[in-house]
Amino acid sequence: MASDDDFPIAAQGLNHWFGSGEARKQALYDVNLRVRRGSLTVLVGPSGSGKTTVLTLLGCLRDVQEGSVSLLGHEVHGAKSDLLISLRKRLGFIFQAHNLHASLTARQNVVMGLQVHGRVDPALADRAAAHALTLVGLGDRLDYLSDNLSGGQKQRVAVARAMVGNPDVIFADEPTAALDRDSGSNVVDLIKKLGRERGTTTVMVTHDNRILDRADRIITLEDGRIVADTEAVPA
């Protein structure tokens, strides 16, 4: 059997409900999956199929109700908040809504992704943030407040923020939805490169065909159940 090191993410018997009492509705049914280190895994499925719920459960953004989630060698179900916080620091999130801080500039938003690890030399943090933003093609927008950026630009800042801390795992929810063809494929290039060079594992919810073509594995959900799981043939 392969060690945890090869599979930084594993879910077993994952069930999840939303609401309470009469309105309680099951959203996930017995989801089991293991994600290989350095791979790009894509979750697809119609809306309401539970893709985002799986993503948030794997990424410690939601308490696990039933089943087990093992992330980077730690059990997440019932974990203390200190463990959750230290795990979250090793993850990078790219949200569907870009979720940038409106009072901060593009560069400051990215710096926040670094400062979560503690005190950083400001000059160093500024340079790292500028580098990350240049990689996503925003080298000329460093000091723009996020309100003054377009939707696609905000999305790219969010990508830079998720990557700047050198995370072990990246969770992304429709990261390319607001991006044009070029920026979209740039982001995928970047994710693939991180996977190759640093072993960064990525789990992504997307409908973007350009990404599906380049995914290592596609998991299809329907009504809260995994209905298909396709591994791409290594090129």
Binding site: S81, R88, K89, L91, F93, F95, H101, V116, R161
Partner: peptide
């Protein structure tokens, strides 16, 4: 007003 932004920070690993 900033709850969403704080939630994002919390998701990134910032503590209370």
């Amino acid at each position: 007003d900033h709850l969403r932004e704080y939630a994002t920070f919390k998701a990134m690993g910032y503590g209370q």
